[in-house]
Amino acid sequence: MNKIITSFHTLLLLIIFFSLIFSIFSMPKLKVSKNESIKINFYEMSELSKPSRKIVSNKKVTSIKKNKDSKDSKDSKDSKDSYTNSNNLSDLLNNSFLKKDIKNEISKIRLTKERKNIIKFSSIIQNKISSIWIKPNSLSETLSAKVLIRLAPSGEILDFELEEPSSNKSFNESILTAMSKIFFFEEIAGADRKVFETNFRNFKLVFKSSGEIR
């Protein structure tokens, strides 16, 4: 009994371990523009990673139709029953595949729309912040600082926090000054509720300086 429990624990541990590894490495960066990127959250990634069976199912539908045509041309009486059977089977298969196709298509459209919305609103935020952030002069080092922002569905900034400051005081100050200039991301008010809740209720701005002289 003890052995069974131990092996069960080991199995569970392995599953958890691989799940952890998968979840850590499943955070791809989606390029928005040449130098700027947005991280897509895990929720969206797991939805996107579901395989689409559209192509496979189409092939199967086509092959079943071909079978049906060939059997029609031969017009064999003996094969009538089998034809009826296969016809029923193909209809059944057809229906089940089509349903899955439609479901997948709907899910895909919904996700594409969601993705587009995330990119759209992220770009708006990016441009707004870039237009008010006055970078300190002469930053010769590579710097990065993260600001955690909490938004209301109206787009109002409820609060922000310099969660991970950089090592450069002026760089941090410039970020806080920029963040103090902005109170609203009005456009967010137009976001779909689910997109807002899963992506923009809490999000982070990662301010970066490449350390280039200019």
């Binding site: 979840s23 130098n35 947005i38 991280k39 870039s130 809490n202 701005l205 990662v206 301010f207 490449s210």
Partner: peptide, 8 residues
């Protein structure tokens, strides 16, 4: 796993 927007 929160959305991160880069400002460069």
């Amino acid at each position: 796993s929160i959305l991160e927007i880069e400002i460069i």
